[in-house]
Nucleic acid binder design. Sequence first.
DNA 1: GTATTCAAATACGTAGTTGTATTTAAATTC
DNA 2: GAATTTAAATACAACTACGTATTTGAATAC
Lengths: 219, 219
Amino acid sequence: MPFVVVRCDMPRKRLTREESREQTRLRLLDAAAAVIVKKGLAGTSVEDIAGHAGYTRGAFYSNFKSKTDLFIELLKSDHAQIQQDLQQLLEADLSNEDLQKQLAQFYGQCYRDHNSYVLWAEARLHAVRDARFRQRMNTLCLEKRDMIASFITQFNQRMAQPPLPAPAPDLALAMMALIDGMLYFNMSMPGEMSDAATGSVLSTIFAATFFGPQAGPPA
Amino acid sequence: MPFVVVRCDMPRKRLTREESREQTRLRLLDAAAAVIVKKGLAGTSVEDIAGHAGYTRGAFYSNFKSKTDLFIELLKSDHAQIQQDLQQLLEADLSNEDLQKQLAQFYGQCYRDHNSYVLWAEARLHAVRDARFRQRMNTLCLEKRDMIASFITQFNQRMAQPPLPAPAPDLALAMMALIDGMLYFNMSMPGEMSDAATGSVLSTIFAATFFGPQAGPPA
DNA sequence: GTATTCAAATACGTAGTTGTATTTAAATTC
DNA sequence: GAATTTAAATACAACTACGTATTTGAATAC
């Protein structure tokens, strides 16, 4: 889902300076996402990015302080999108569909596509090494956690189920870890685990956690 | 847990050529592991590795074909260790300790330490990009899966529990994904999720999967 | 329409990386 | 102990990457 806006209103409008600048920014971000997914963050040069977007390094440095700088912006955009998707899910689809469907959607929405997920995997690894970066990323992750926590709380209330076995934010974190685990796994071993298997594993876990009789964790 | 053998039998034995060669090999592998964890696979130069091991690039190219070559060897060694650990667990500790303890051990043994796990995370990302590498890695992963499948089967028999809700290898794969999810999560967000929470989440899931009443996944 | 501003291109110097080719010194062989 | 072998060091040449400094040309302001 690229950033670049809908192009080409018929009369090929001559761009103002600001518009033009914004356009190259977006193009650079798109290009960066594509190239980084393909070659990895460290394996991608500034020139790669600029080149893939149809510019030279000059354009890059005129728009971003550094590769890391751009990368963070990339993650922020993606994060914003994810949050928006979740928000939507939280508001709209909380009617009485069955658990399975909810899950499927939920799972599918967590990251927008394969590329998005690879990007975050890259980010995680980078976070291990760069404390400052890690902090920034954790902020985003905790925002997501809170969103999911809301989802859990609402879901639990709506379904009038037994009380949650742990604080919603904790459960949210756990669910994130689990879902990420599945995605992460499928990322590098595609096809090894069928979608059906993935889904049923997740539904088992969800069921156990939110409906299970003796299943609740003590902490 | 470095590779280098116990050094220094008192009389400082003069090394034979072969021994010496093997020693530098091991030192290079150790150094590589350390540096790659710290700076990432792509961010690590051959010189970094050789230097950290106390050699020059000459020694490196005399022992390995390329960085990737060394990396694969690194993973193989680590994998062998992991398999050995699991094997041991499978044979030894299947007496009647309670589930919690089993789990704790199981979880703790899956990767030898933080560094080991980071290495595998790096490998996953690399696998996304390199089909050949991916194949090689999948072989290792499936070996591990089979080991865990044995564990599951034995565990289930020993405990005389209800029949497994899915073929053991499938369950094994799912469990790997889940455990990896937790580890992966804790890798980049250390401290965000307490060990207690991690443990209880896992035990919940295990319980649900292997003991749960209606909890088993259909597939 | 001329002057100014600024986005992006180009030029440049430095530093780092790679793989091979050659050398050197220690270990082995005879 | 001289000749040979070979692990590892050194030398080398081509390349890539970075960031800055400067230039260029189109868009704005006057």
